[in-house]
Every structure is written in C-alpha cells, then in structure tokens.
C-alpha cells in the first residue's frame, strides 16, 4: 500500500470513527453515572432520522442538528425515567429503545416522504459540508507530512472536529469539575453521594441528557454529514460497536479516541481489503475484518488483554435506605 492509498484509508477512518467516538462518549457519560445503556443505537437512529427529516423541511443543518439532539435526548429521558424513576431493568429498557426508535423512524419516514423509509436528500444548506483548513492546498505540495495535513486532517465537516475535541472536553468535565466528580461517584457508590446530600436521580438524569445530546450529534453526522439523508437502519450496529469501544477504552474518554480510531480504521480497511491478497496470510475474508472489533472485545472481556472493570454501581437501580 503506498502512502497516498494509506492516507486515503486514514481519511475514511477518521470519517467512520466520528460517529463511533460520539456514541462511545455518550455511553461513557451515562455508564460512569451508573446507568447502563445499550440503547445508543436507538438514540443515534432517532437523531439521524430527526436530522434527515428536519434538514429536508427547513434546509438548515443547524436546526436539523438541534432536532437530532432533541429527539435523542427525548429517548434519553425515557431511558432515565424507566431506569432511575421506575427502577426498571436497564438492559431491557435499552433494547426497547433500540426497537422503538428504529420502528418509529421507518414508520414516520415511510408516511412523510413515501420513499420506503428513507428521507430525500436535503439541500446543500441542510448538510454539514467539509471545511478546508488554512493552507491545506499549499501543504499538499509539501511532501508526505503536508499531504497528511491536507488529506487526513483537513477537509472534514465541523462535526468531525467537534468529535475529536470532545474526548478532551469530556476528560476535563469528568476529572476537573465538581459535576464530573459527582457523576463518577454516583456510578461507583450512589449511597455516598446521597449521604452527601446530592441527588442521585438528578445526576443520573444529567448523564442520560448528555448521552442523548452526543448520540444526537452522532446521528446528525450520519444523516447530514457523512451521507445525504436518512436511510433505514443507517447506524448499522454502530451503537453496539461504540459500546464495545467503551469497554475497550475502559470507560475513559481519551483512550476512547484511540479505540474508536482503531475500529474506524478496521472498518475503512475492510472496504479496501476486499479480495486483496496479503503477504503470508492470503486473502482475508472481508467478513473477518468486519467481525474483528467484536472478536477483540470478547477477548478483552475475557480478561486476556488487560482487565476492563466497569463502574461499580452500573446497572443497579439506586434505592434510598428506608
């Protein structure tokens, strides 16, 4: 593989890892608060559909983004109501949200746009288009490093840059602010937080709201950034890969960045390696590369590569002592 092809793969790796990264951080905020969420997939779908539909209606990418966040946060609140207020089973609630969002998007899309569940392509103003960073064109002439800047770093839309900034923001929020400390505490020992007079429920709701907002951005990126319009089930399991990435990153924001890049890179190279014969390995079935993130996660979970310890109170509804 020559340098240019490699840069090309890296470029698509960046594009493909963006939704993973956003969803992974979304999961991080709620799981660190002690609410397990396998409904990331559904929230992303809600966001993607809302973004796609609103972009068509209004022609504004920013209003579409807000709609995506709103739709996704709505499902976050449903999840929080079920898990925190009703103390229901968190896994069951997540599964339910995945199906509800998928079904609702298809039903509404089918009825509003009559294109078998997808939304029509929004106008250009309704999409996030790529931004050329300063001096990208000049840098492209200046050897391999310049090419890297021009091809991989420059030329993405604003949501990609936000996504790659987000892990650092998340790190700051979680480990340098009072809110972050409390959020993490409520995922480890809610009783202690409660004793200190801080509302467990409010913190867990906040975790779900942040989670919903980030999933909304991820969905909007899929529908009006990476693609033009919502397609049925366009998240294609990314919510689950994000969950895998979250475990892989051991529930920490900055490692999440690298894990998501790795998974994005695997995805990008799977497309590239179809039918290509590798030295000493032969032709690797493309399905194997697609399954690799899942296989790696299982191996990690089995404790063969380090140990992934989830937040202690994750998945357990908090009951005040009576």
């Amino acid at each position: 593989m020559d340098w240019l092809t490699f840069l090309n793969v890296l470029d698509s790796a960046v594009r493909l890892s963006t939704p993973l990264l956003l969803a992974c951080l979304a999961g991080l905020f709620t799981e660190r608060a002690g609410v397990v969420d396998i409904g990331l997939e559904g929230k992303m779908i809600a966001g993607a559909f809302a973004a796609g539909a609103v972009a068509v209606f209004t022609g504004s990418a920013w209003i579409a983004l807000l709609a995506a966040i709103g739709a996704s946060v709505f499902f976050g609140l449903v999840h929080a109501f079920a898990c925190v207020t009703q103390r229901g089973n968190q896994i069951v609630s997540g599964v339910a949200i995945n199906f509800i969002a998928l079904g609702l998007a298809a039903v509404l899309g089918h009825s509003w746009f009559e294109q078998g569940g997808k939304t029509p392509a929004p106008p250009v103003s309704g999409r996030f288009t790529s931004i050329d960073l300063p001096y990208a064109a000049e840098a492209a002439q200046m050897g391999p490093v310049g090419r890297f800047y021009a091809d991989v770093v420059s030329g993405h839309n604003i949501l990609v840059y936000f996504a790659f900034l987000a892990p650092f923001l998340a790190w700051w929020l979680l480990s340098r602010t009072r809110f972050g400390l409390r959020l993490r505490a409520v995922g480890e020992n809610p009783a202690a937080v409660d004793t200190a007079g801080v509302s467990v429920a409010r913190l867990r709701y906040s975790g779900q709201i942040i989670c919903g907002a980030l999933c909304g951005v991820a969905g909007a990126y899929l529908a009006i950034g990476l693609n033009a319009g919502y397609l049925n089930n366009m998240t294609a399991g990314r919510g689950y890969i994000a969950l895998a990435a979250l475990i892989f990153a051991k529930w920490r924001p900055v490692p999440a960045l690298f894990v998501c890049l790795l998974f994005g890179f695997l995805d990008a190279s799977a497309n590239r390696l179809q039918g290509v014969s590798l030295p000493s390995v032969g032709v690797v079935p493309v399905q194997f590369i697609q399954a690799l993130p899942y296989i790696l996660t299982v191996i990690l979970l089995a404790g063969f590569i380090g140990k992934a310890v989830p937040p202690k109170a994750g998945g357990v509804p908090y009951v005040k002592e009576r």
Partner: peptide
C-alpha cells in the same frame, strides 16, 4: 403504514412489559 410498525410495537411491548412493568 410501513411493515416496520411491527418493530415499533415490539419495542413498545418490551418497554411497557419489561422496563416499565411496575
């Protein structure tokens, strides 16, 4: 009405009979 209505109903049943059973 899309056939995916079924998926929606399935999700609602899981939500109300499962997570919101109480």
């Amino acid at each position: 009405i899309s056939r995916d209505m079924l998926i929606l109903i399935q999700g609602l049943v899981i939500l109300f009979s499962g997570a919101l059973e109480n």
